[in-house]
Simulated scan of single mutants.
Amino acid sequence: MAWIIATRVAGHPLPFFSPAAALNVLTQARGRRIRRTAEVVLGVLVAELVVQALGPCTTSTVLVVVLLTVTPAVAVGASSVSTVQATLCALYLAVVSPPNETLVPGRFVDALIGGVVALVTSQVLNVRRPLVPLAGH
């Protein structure tokens, strides 16, 4: 769903971060999905801005992107899996995928779409079983 919205509504030809963000958010427990969405979206935004400022695929860009991804993740107490996932996304932005020169980075928008789709999907799926959290299953 995230891919479809990003391609058809936002007009992005290859919105890698939409389904990646959605899957990343949906793998979290119910009470952690909003935080995970914020982590993913803000992580992509920071990495995108660093890559646009320094240019893609240079040693300094990679170093700065890794430091700006790992440091806040560790500071806020993110799990090691979250920290690694955020760093891998940031490295992808810096090394593999060339930046676009728009005012609002497209990959940030893609991550935002994916996060929102995941949050909406998780709420819709949980409406069907409202007593499950109370039953302890």
Rank of each mutant, 00 (worst) to 15 (best):
H137F: 15
R8A: 06
R32K: 13
L23R: 03
P99G: 00
R107P: 01
T27C: 11
G31A: 10
R128E: 08
A21N: 08
G11I: 00
V41K: 02
N24S: 15
V116S: 13
D110I: 04
A47F: 04
L63S: 12
N126T: 10
S82C: 11
V70L: 05
L54G: 06
A78Q: 03
R32S: 13
P19W: 10
V64I: 12
T59E: 06
V65C: 08
L88S: 14
R36G: 01
L131F: 12
L88A: 15
L49Y: 04
V81L: 14
G11C: 11
G55S: 12
G31K: 08
I5T: 11
T102C: 00
S79Y: 09
L45G: 10
Q123N: 13
S122C: 12
G31M: 04
N100Q: 13
V25T: 11
A47I: 03
T121L: 14
A29Y: 06
L103K: 07
N24M: 14
V81N: 09
R32I: 05
A29F: 03
L112F: 15
A22S: 13
L54S: 04
T58N: 08
G106F: 11
A90W: 02
V117K: 03
W3Q: 10
G106W: 05
G115M: 01
V40E: 01
E101H: 11
S80D: 07
L23D: 06
G136Q: 11
L42K: 08
T37Y: 02
V81H: 04
A73K: 01
L125D: 02
L42F: 14
L103G: 05
A75G: 09
C57N: 13
V109K: 02
V116A: 14
L125P: 00
A73E: 02
I113R: 02
V124P: 01
P56Q: 04
R33P: 01
L45D: 06
L49C: 09
G31V: 03
V76Y: 08
I34W: 12
V104H: 05
I5P: 00
